[in-house]
Computed example of a mutant assay.
Amino acid sequence: MLILVLNAGSSSLKFNLVDMEEEKTLAEGIAERIGISEGFIRWTIQGEKGRLELDMANHKKALAAIMEQLKHTVLGEDQDVDAVGHRVAHGGPNFGDSEVITPAVLKEIEELAFYAPLHNPASASGIRTAQELFPGVPQVAVFDTAFHHSMPEYAYTYGLPYELCQRLGLRRYGFHGTSHRYVAERTAALIGKPLEASKIITCHLGNGSSITAVHNGHSVDTSMGLTPLEGVVMGTRSGNLDPGVLTTLMEQEKLDGPALSALLNKKSGLLGISGVSSDCREVEEAMDKNKRAKLAHDVLCYGVLKYVGSYAAAMNGVDAICFTAGIGENSPGLRSWICDRLGFLGVAINEEINGTRSKADRFISTPDSKVAVVVVPTNEELMIAREAKRLTSNN
């Protein structure tokens, strides 16, 4: 069974072609600058890298060009994919699972742009494009928020008037759910415990970051909220703020809603604190000579540390802590900063192993550590492909 996984952005389209018989990625890549001049597509197909300079007026042109490359390589001219899985950022209050896309599902995805104006319209565009190019092929929406629908009401409820929250759907939804689910399953396998009888804290740390408490296979709390802005500081996002900061900014800087949103989402976080970069690698490189860079790094580490501690309390213990995504997988300094302060949980890591770069799942904790600490490269695309197979293989 061949599954095409698509992740549509406003001017980009990521793709993965997965052979589900062996769960092997045959091709992956991205089309960028869609609707903009100097567009291009880059890919890795069966280990061979390629790039095509191509102006693409819309997502349909991009996907058609991607499929042309695939049909000249891994797919024959007459072979098609069996299903298409789409990453959708926000599923709102109603989608607690992946869904086969119907006109009603697509309509609701578009209406949920209220919560994710930068993401859901792009996802809907990607879905419509795939429906046009693959008529009759089942399409599946996999929601970033779905995994977190298992949170108890007390964990997702905001301290606002209850009727207002009900009317507007204001609650903690959480994001990166596909990643958290994947790495939690891998972590349980690594430590040799059934997922259904484990307490795992997953730290998805990248340009966007979130931490999740996974108790017996279910998300019971997560750091992102109504939007991906809540939680720890990120590349350009502020993370948690006293709401009074927002009213002060609006009053003193005369900011309206869009200007405030731009400040919080695009000019804050590591970039705003350090003044150096939104890229954690560049921030870490500047730490020795730049106090603000070190401060930005420490603010991020401290934020993760607090969530790990609070989630250990929320689950009344923890079996394993997992680091994943760009920063989580590639920053030994960040992992050391956090784990060195978790001695009260019995955490101990092997600094030599922690400092060794690898793309494989691995333990960085010592054999006598009371809590396992692992690094697991995430694979959201495989999880989306699995969901697409689960919902369509009987069709």
Rank of each mutant, 00 (worst) to 15 (best):
G169C: 01
H176N: 09
A116H: 12
A189M: 11
H180C: 07
F147Q: 03
H90S: 08
F114A: 12
G92F: 06
Q131V: 05
D97Q: 13
G159S: 10
Y158Q: 07
F143C: 02
S125K: 15
E108A: 13
R87I: 03
T202Q: 05
T202G: 05
I127M: 05
G136D: 07
Q166L: 02
V74F: 04
L168S: 05
T102N: 14
H204M: 04
R172Q: 00
E163Q: 14
G208M: 07
S150P: 05
K193A: 09
K193S: 09
H72S: 15
G177F: 13
C203P: 01
A197S: 15
I109L: 10
L160T: 05
V137N: 01
K71A: 00
V183E: 09
G136V: 12
G174P: 04
F114W: 13
G96E: 11
V137D: 03
A184C: 01
S179V: 01
Q139S: 00
S209H: 05
T145M: 09
L133R: 12
Y154S: 12
E153H: 12
V81E: 06
T129S: 04
Y173I: 07
S150R: 03
P93S: 15
T187E: 04
D97C: 11
L160C: 04
Y182F: 14
T129Y: 00
Q166S: 02
V74Y: 04
H86P: 09
P194D: 04
V88G: 01
N207G: 13
A116L: 13
S123W: 13
G76W: 04
I109H: 10
I109Q: 06
T145K: 08
G136S: 09
E185Y: 11
D78I: 13
V105P: 12
I200A: 02
P117V: 09
K193I: 08
G85E: 06
A89M: 14
R186F: 13
Y156N: 10
I101Y: 08
N207V: 10
F134A: 07
R172D: 04
Y158S: 06
A116F: 15
D78C: 12
S209A: 10
T178Y: 04
P152R: 00
Y154I: 09
L75M: 03
A155S: 03
Y182E: 09
E99N: 12
S125M: 15
S98D: 09
I109A: 08
K71L: 01
D80S: 15
A89I: 15
A155R: 00
C203D: 00
E163N: 14
A89L: 15
F95G: 07
V140R: 03
S125N: 15
D97W: 11
G126Q: 03
